[in-house]
Computed example of a mutant assay.
Amino acid sequence: MNNFGGMHFIWWIIWFIFLVWIFFIPTDIPYQKTKKDSPLDILKKRFAKGEISKEEFEESKKILNSKN
C-alpha cells in the first residue's frame, strides 16, 4: 500500500481550486479600470448634473475645442 495516496488526493483538490479560480474570477473588476475621462466628458457630466448652465457649457466647450 502506498503511503502517499492522501497527498495525491490533496493535489487534485489544489488543481481543482486553481481551475475554478481561473475560470470563475470576474474579468471586469471595477477598480482595475484606469480610464480617465476627457475634459469634454467631465464637462458633459457636470452639465447633465446641473452643476453648470447651458451658457457655461457652450462657452467651455468652445474653449476646449479651440485648444485642439
Rank of each mutant, 00 (worst) to 15 (best):
I10F: 12
K33M: 02
F9D: 12
M7D: 03
D41N: 05
F16I: 14
W21E: 00
D41V: 11
K54W: 06
K61L: 08
S66A: 15
Q32A: 12
W21H: 07
S53Y: 05
I63P: 04
K61A: 06
A48W: 01
T34S: 07
L19S: 08
L40T: 15
K44G: 08
I29M: 07
S53K: 09
T34D: 04
K44F: 10
P39T: 04
I13C: 14
I14V: 15
K35D: 10
N2W: 14
L19D: 01
W11C: 10
I22K: 03
K49T: 09
D37R: 11
K35T: 14
E55C: 12
I29W: 00
I25K: 15
L43W: 02
G50S: 04
Y31H: 06
I42F: 03
D28N: 15
M1Y: 06
L40Y: 05
G50L: 04
T34V: 14
H8N: 11
E58D: 15
I10N: 04
I52H: 03
F23A: 01
I29G: 04
K49C: 04
P30N: 05
N68C: 05
F24C: 07
I63N: 07
F57W: 07
K61Q: 08
P30W: 06
I42M: 08
E58M: 12
F4S: 08
I29R: 09
R46T: 04
T34Y: 02
I63H: 08
F16Y: 11
F9P: 01
F47W: 02
D37T: 09
K33C: 02
E59S: 14
F4E: 02
H8G: 11
K62L: 11
E55L: 15
K35R: 14
G6I: 07
L64R: 06
I25A: 15
A48V: 04
S53G: 15
K35F: 06
Q32T: 11
N3D: 11
F18W: 03
K61Y: 07
F18D: 00
W21G: 09
K45P: 00
T34R: 03
F57T: 09
F57A: 09
F18M: 01
K36P: 01
G50Y: 01
N3A: 15
I42A: 10
K54A: 15
W21T: 12
K45I: 12
K35C: 04
Q32G: 11
T34G: 01
M1R: 05
K35W: 02
F9L: 15
F18G: 02
F18L: 00
S53F: 07
E55H: 12
I22L: 09
K67M: 12
